Amino acid sequence: MALNFRVSVRETSNQSVALQLYGDFDASSACELINVLEKNVKRSRKVAIDTDQLRTVNAFGLDVFLPSMSRLNNTRADIQVTGRFSEVFNEV
């Protein structure tokens, strides 16, 4: 786990979860976020990921994350990315 990365998970309703990303997003951060998402898409219909609190987004981190994001989007959960880095996360 990256020392300068954190994911805050908050249930917003019975079947919705909001994730807030903090710090620098790199390959180890991508793995951590994938693990958090895999746990939450099983029990939620909507997952919102807010990228406003990220400082940087590493290209290799995206290379690790985006294929899993594509796979997770094919589950029953609707995953939406918002915030200032949303465009780079939505390139799937």
Score class of each variant (00 low, 15 high):
L3M: 13
F5P: 03
R6H: 10
S8E: 15
S8Q: 14
R10F: 12
R10I: 12
T12F: 01
T12K: 08
S13V: 08
N14R: 09
V17C: 11
L19D: 11
Y22S: 05
Y22K: 12
Y22F: 15
G23I: 04
D24Y: 03
F25N: 05
A27G: 05
S28D: 13
S28P: 00
A30L: 08
A30Q: 04
C31M: 11
C31V: 13
C31D: 11
E32Q: 15
N35H: 11
V36D: 02
V36F: 02
L37Q: 03
E38R: 15
E38F: 02
K39V: 11
K39Y: 01
K39T: 15
V41Q: 02
K42R: 15
R43Q: 12
S44W: 00
V47C: 05
V47Q: 07
D50Q: 09
T51E: 05
T51Q: 05
D52I: 03
D52K: 02
Q53N: 13
T56C: 09
T56S: 11
T56L: 12
V57C: 06
N58I: 00
G61R: 06
D63C: 08
V64W: 12
F65H: 01
F65V: 00
L66P: 03
P67C: 02
M69V: 05
M69G: 00
N73F: 00
N73S: 07
R76Q: 14
R76Y: 02
R76A: 11
D78N: 10
D78S: 07
T82A: 08
R84N: 15
F89P: 00
F89K: 01
N90R: 13
N90H: 04
E91S: 14
E91H: 09
V92T: 04
